[in-house]
Design a binder for these strands. Structure first.
Lengths: 264, 264
DNA sequence: CGCCGTCTTGACGAATCTCAAATAAAGTGG
DNA sequence: CCACTTTATTTGAGATTCGTCAAGACGGCG
């Protein structure tokens, strides 16, 4: 009785930031039996963070289903009615802002444990697009249920508020980066951010795979793809990192941090 | 029993983005009797927007006090414990993000009817500074009360969620601007945004006073103050606006919009 | 094996920043 | 209210960063 959250088609749209070249099938809803926060291995990184077992059980009532995404599948499209938040269970997504004039910008890179879709609440429509960067799985959190549960339990309520507010803080950091940093500082900052996020999830914090193209990274950082490429080469040449296509290894984290902090 | 929200000192801090040259007295709390959403003239623009009379009365229980600010008074300082949101009743404020390295950036310009402080929820501490750009008055909305009321009334809850989400959307727009626009487009975009916001509050949408310096505007737009100044001169020369110090008059709104929309 | 999307690198130019100096406006104390 | 001090704004000239255009290399997939 509530497949609404999965009303996400898969065909090409005029919005599409990614170059989708072939029609895609509907996104597939996965058995809801498996969607349980209380037994999920991501508990410490996802919505339930900080909640005790009892509260985590409450969340089991929210997560009604999961969606499997293949690389380039579109999870959210701009203008789409807002019904749910999505928690990434595995894989990664980018979010893309698309202005009326066609201007677009990658506004986020999201990995397991992170939540997307909060932009849609105010207007009841999403204003960004979300696309899988690799095969991924997301949990669907119907917003009505969240609100209902939040009214009945202050822990759930606090979790929701924390979640919305941290999206605001995340964007604050991005704005600081876009508004005050030089190209090389932005890239260094991006690499350190990835490192920190992978590290806190138990992946290597010094060696990882970039899931976005140079162009997408550039868009995210407010730069052209050539600038990103040149900076990767320069960092490599200067011994700060080792980079081979999408595989990056941080060699001198301290120097990277100094780059970011340097006022000039 | 709850003066906590007013625990805001006024002396010089190492953070201070504005150049405050003298010590300032404590911010003054104003009689709480007057703070009533249900009779406030800003109802259509502030928190109560969209609520009926009955729901607006609920908000009266939230707004416990008001604070008067003089120009340059600091309402929120970074790191300060989060206790409340603030609704601007009159006057205007800027919010400033401050990085550890001292890097700072104006992240918002807020006028009557707008809410500030939502960044603090996630970490229980504010991460931005809020400073009055002119004499102003703000309503204090203790967050505990908001949450309590939101649990009991879904209209209040929805209002809160809408409010947090629109802050996210506001920042999305800023990011698009910082990440994809040229200097002249950013300024045109800023002027149109001011125009729209003043207009919707019953002020003139074509003639208004800038409350920020060229430097603050530059910081907000990710530009140097000289660039801002030159652009004001250029827009004036080209007949798009008339500008005399802080007083701006929009002469050709269509051309300004075209500037913003132009892809190159 | 060849195509296509991605990435790298170079050369050049435009946009923007930096530094500097003059002018205008605002704030301060008498 | 005036004279003085400080802050804000404008404008110019030169330096720098980054974007644009172009060509070729790389690599994965059919």
């Amino acid at each position: 009785m509530e497949a609404a959250a999965v009303a996400v088609a898969g065909s090409v749209t005029p919005f599409s930031g990614a170059t989708i070249t072939r029609p895609r099938p509907m996104l597939r809803e996965v058995s809801r039996a498996m969607a349980q926060c209380s037994t999920c291995s991501l508990q410490q990184h996802c919505v339930p963070v900080g909640l005790d077992m009892e509260a985590a059980r409450l969340l089991d009532r929210i997560v009604t289903s999961r969606i499997r995404l293949r690389k380039r599948d579109v999870l959210i499209r701009p203008g789409q009615p807002f019904t749910a938040l999505y928690a990434i269970r595995s894989g990664s997504c980018k979010t893309v802002l698309i202005a009326e004039d066609g201007n677009d910008q990658v506004s986020g890179y999201h990995i397991a444990g992170e939540i997307i879709g909060a932009d849609g609440i105010a207007t009841a429509r999403h204003d960004c697009q979300a696309v899988a960067l690799e095969d991924a799985e997301v949990c669907v959190l119907p917003f009505e249920r969240i609100e209902q549960l939040a009214r009945n339990d202050s822990r759930v309520q606090a979790t929701l508020h924390r979640l919305l507010s941290s999206e605001i803080s995340r964007e604050h950091n991005l704005m600081l980066m876009l508004g005050t940093m030089r190209a090389h500082q932005r890239l260094a900052s991006y690499l350190l951010d990835l490192s920190q996020r992978y590290g806190s999830r138990g992946y290597s914090s010094s060696e990882f795979m970039l899931r976005m193209t140079r162009e997408e990274i550039g868009s995210y950082l407010g730069l052209e793809l050539e600038t990103v490429s040149r900076l990767f080469s320069r960092f490599h040449r200067e011994g700060l990192i080792q980079v081979q296509a999408r595989l990056v290894k941080l060699l001198d984290r301290i120097a990277l941090k100094q780059l970011v902090a340097a006022s000039a």
